[in-house]
Design a binder for these strands. Structure first.
Lengths: 212, 212
DNA sequence: CGTTGTGAAGGTCTTCACAGCC
DNA sequence: GGCTGTGAAGACCTTCACAACG
């Protein structure tokens, strides 16, 4: 299947999906214009994005919400289930371990890891925290699709290397670091301070524009 | 100052800054090639990005790390301090309230809010949790630069509206929702499930390519 | 000699605008 | 009539490649 969807489109599909789930409580059909308004994009964008999934709209009417949801879930691979491990259970990792959004989208947390002896053996969100040194052991027994790195920046690359060595193909990185991994492994960064700094750029560039 | 930096560049500047902070422990100077390797981008990209800040490199040598850090901080507005409020102190909001990265970059958390009576009045990360109904009152007494929305999706738009009405210009949104705000207000989304779904797209599109 | 700064080329993404269809 | 699907245009972003320079 050479049906590759442009990156920019892929990044919007989860947004559309969520909007459709919301909408489905109120309507069964929706136009590209409506979806665009809710998702905060241009309607031509929506139509072009959806056309990569194959054309499932009806001219003069719009899209059937239920069908479109199904298409999106299929395109994003959400009809399968995925297993997840969380590395590092400090404040953020603990919060993630209890995050209800995993279940809701078919992700199953299979293990938590940390290096802190005070945390190892404790239960968080229904899972026992294991020693990080047991990572390889655990990954040899269970298939893990996604590793979530919630360690301090200093430990992130090491942990990522070990995940990669153990065959994990996807990493969600909360540490404020760029991870270096083979091309075959996909990583996404979710870094609070980077995003804050992008906001401060705009805050300050506005105040610069103020005439003196 | 019509010195506007392209969006794509602005998004990379925080990454460069962090890389330079790391590097500064080991060296005083660095080439675009080196910075590019660490930041995971092309070296021409680095040079072009940095050229928007004005040209501060030395041919044949590279950039002085300390100077470049200073330029980046200035461009991102980090020489000023910013005040932050956190809306919603569930798992995620609580974790954020204790996040050391705020202080490190000059952000000051000035208040936490929640609707849950069991949480109101408790202390988290050295701050007392206030009733969300006191939001307007508080914002009329203190200038707040950035609102961090860590509420459930269902409350996010309401909270955002109230922040905007109270004059907050920047919002960091952890709720899995697209916020609708005036153009003058900047928002950034940091949504775990969106990012996970982008990862699953790649996981599944690979397995599709496997010849049958 | 090594590295920057940048014009030009090449991609990718977004938006327009309208034919085609229900 | 209303809305989709899409070619074409335009905006934006990245990469190349090399002159300029310390």
């Amino acid at each position: 299947m050479t049906n590759s969807i442009p990156t920019a489109t892929v990044a919007r599909l989860p947004v559309y999906l969520r909007c459709l789930v919301d909408m489905s409580e109120r309507q069964t059909t929706c136009s590209s214009e409506q979806l665009a308004a809710v998702a905060g994009v241009n309607s031509a964008q929506v139509r072009k994005d959806l056309s990569y999934l194959g054309s499932h709209g009806v001219r003069g009417v719009g899209y059937t919400i239920a069908d479109l949801q199904e298409q999106l879930r299929r395109a994003l691979g959400l009809h399968k289930g995925y297993s997840v491990v969380i590395l590092g259970v400090g404040n953020l990792g603990s919060a993630l371990a209890s995050y209800p959004g995993f279940d809701a989208w078919g992700f199953q947390v299979v293990a938590l890891f940390d290096v802190d002896p005070a945390r190892i053996g404790t239960m968080i969100g229904g899972h026992e925290v294991r020693a990080l040194s047991d990572l390889e052991q655990t990954l040899s027994n269970v298939t893990v699709d996604i590793g979530i790195v919630a360690t301090p920046a200093s430990a992130a690359q090491d942990v990522a290397d070990r995940l990669v060595a153990a065959g994990v193909r996807s990493i969600l990185n909360f540490a404020p670091t760029v991870l270096h991994v083979p091309d075959s492994v996909k990583t996404r960064r979710l870094d609070v301070s980077t995003q804050l700094q992008i906001l401060t750029y705009h805050l300050q560039s506005e105040s610069e524009d103020t005439p003196g």
